[in-house]
C-alpha cells in the first residue's frame, strides 16, 4: 500500500511538472499582448518606450525560459506572483479568495445531488419499468439535456423577478447560494441517478443477492446490506470524475449568478492574458485532479474489500 501511494505521488509530480510547462507554452503562444489591455480607450498617447517600461516592470521583456524559471521557482516557495491585470494583487490572494466560493457551491450541490439521486436510483433500479423508473429516466434525461445557462436564468426569472423570494445574484446572504446550488446539482443528479439505477439493476441479478434472499433475509436487509454497498462503487468513480471537472460546470453558473469563484477568475484571466493567474490555476487544478484520483482509488479499497493495492 505504502509503495503504491509513493509511486502514484511520484507520477503525480511528473504530471504537474509537464502541465506547468505546457500551460506556460500555450499562454505565450496565444496571440496578443496583455500590456495593451492596461490602456483604456481614453489613453491618447501610447509610445513604444512606455510599453517597454511596463513590460520590464512585469518581467515580460525577459526570454521565455527565464520567465518560466522565475515563475516555477516562485511557485515552489508558494509565491504565485502578482496579477498583471489586477495590477500588483498577489495571485495567491486572488485564488484563495475564489476557492471558498467554488468549493462551498460544489459541496452543497453534491450533497443535494447525492441525497436525491442515490435513493431515486436505487428505487428505480428495484422497480424496473415501473412508473418510478420512467419518472427517474425522464428527470435525469432532462437534467443532462438542460443547459446550465438557461436553467440559471429561468430560476432567476421565477424566484427573483416573479416571486421575489431570492436575490438574483451574488452571495450577500445565504439565500444567494440556493439557486446556483440547484443548477449545479441538477446536472450531477441526473448523471448519478442513471449510474445508480443501472448498477442497482446489475447487482440485483448477482448470485450473492439471490443467496441472501434464499437465506430468508428481509428485502430491506438484502438491499441495504448486500446490494447498495456494491452498487455504490461506480457512483464513487463518477463523483471523483466530477470533482476533476468542477471547474467547467461552475464557469457558467458563476457567470450567470455573478459569483466571485474560481471559474470566473479563470475565464477572466484567460481572456485578459493574465499569465500568472492562468498558469498558477492550471498547476493547482492539476494537483487537485492528481490528489482526487488517488483518493478515489484508495476509497475503492474501503468500499470493496477485494481491491488491494499490493
Amino acid at each position: 500500500m505504502g509503495r503504491y501511494i509513493f509511486v502514484r505521488v511520484m507520477q503525480g509530480i511528473v504530471v504537474i511538472f509537464l502541465i506547468s510547462v505546457l500551460t506556460f507554452i500555450i499562454m505565450r503562444m496565444m496571440p496578443g499582448d496583455p500590456v495593451y489591455l492596461l490602456f483604456g480607450e481614453g489613453k491618447v498617447r501610447i509610445t513604444e518606450e512606455q510599453m517597454q517600461a511596463i513590460r520590464a516592470r512585469w518581467g515580460l521583456d525577459q526570454p521565455y525560459y527565464v520567465q518560466y524559471m522565475v515563475w516555477a521557482r516562485n511557485m515552489l516557495t508558494g509565491d504565485f506572483g502578482d496579477s498583471l491585470i489586477r495590477t500588483g494583487t498577489p495571485v495567491r490572494q486572488m485564488i484563495f479568495e475564489a476557492i471558498p466560493v467554488t468549493l462551498t457551491l460544489n459541496l452543497y450541490a453534491m450533497l443535494l445531488a447525492l441525497s436525491i439521486s442515490i435513493p431515486l436510483g436505487i428505487w428505480a433500479g428495484m422497480r424496473r419499468n415501473s412508473f418510478v423508473d420512467y419518472f427517474a429516466s425522464i428527470v435525469s434525461a432532462m437534467g443532462i439535456a438542460t443547459p446550465n445557462f438557461w436553467l440559471g436564468l429561468m430560476l432567476i426569472v421565477i424566484f427573483s423577478l416573479v416571486l421575489g423570494l431570492l436575490p438574483p445574484f451574488g452571495l450577500r446572504s445565504w439565500q444567494g447560494y440556493i439557486l446556483p446550488v440547484i443548477v449545479l446539482a441538477a446536472e450531477q443528479m441526473a448523471v448519478v441517478t442513471r449510474v445508480m439505477r443501472s448498477s442497482t439493476v446489475e447487482v440485483l441479478n448477482e448470485d450473492y443477492v439471490r443467496t441472501a434472499r434464499a437465506k430468508g433475509l428481509t428485502e430491506r436487509t438484502v438491499i441495504i446490506r448486500h446490494a447498495v454497498r456494491n452498487a455504490l462503487l461506480p457512483v464513487v468513480t463518477v463523483i471523483g470524475f466530477n470533482i476533476a471537472f468542477i471547474l467547467s460546470g461552475t464557469i457558467v453558473v458563476e457567470t450567470v449568478f455573478a459569483l466571485p469563484g474560481i471559474g470566473r477568475l479563470f475565464t477572466d484571466s484567460v481572456f485578459r492574458l493574465d499569465y500568472q493567474v492562468v498558469q498558477s490555476l492550471f498547476v493547482l487544478l492539476a494537483a487537485l485532479v492528481v490528489v482526487v484520483n488517488l483518493l478515489t482509488d484508495l476509497l475503492y479499497a474501503l468500499i470493496d474489500p477485494r481491491i488491494r493495492f499490493d
Binding site: 436564468l153 432567476i156 426569472v157 427573483s160 423577478l161 421575489g164 436575490p167 438574483p168 445574484f169 451574488g170 457567470t255 450567470v256 449568478f257 455573478a258 466571485p260 470566473r264
Partner: peptide, 18 residues
C-alpha cells in the same frame, strides 16, 4: 458597485430593486 457580468441578470436586478 456590484459586479454582474450577465446582461440580463443586471436587468432583473434593476427590476427587483436589488
Amino acid at each position: 458597485l456590484d459586479v454582474v457580468p450577465e446582461d440580463s441578470v443586471r436587468m432583473i436586478a434593476l427590476q427587483t430593486g436589488d
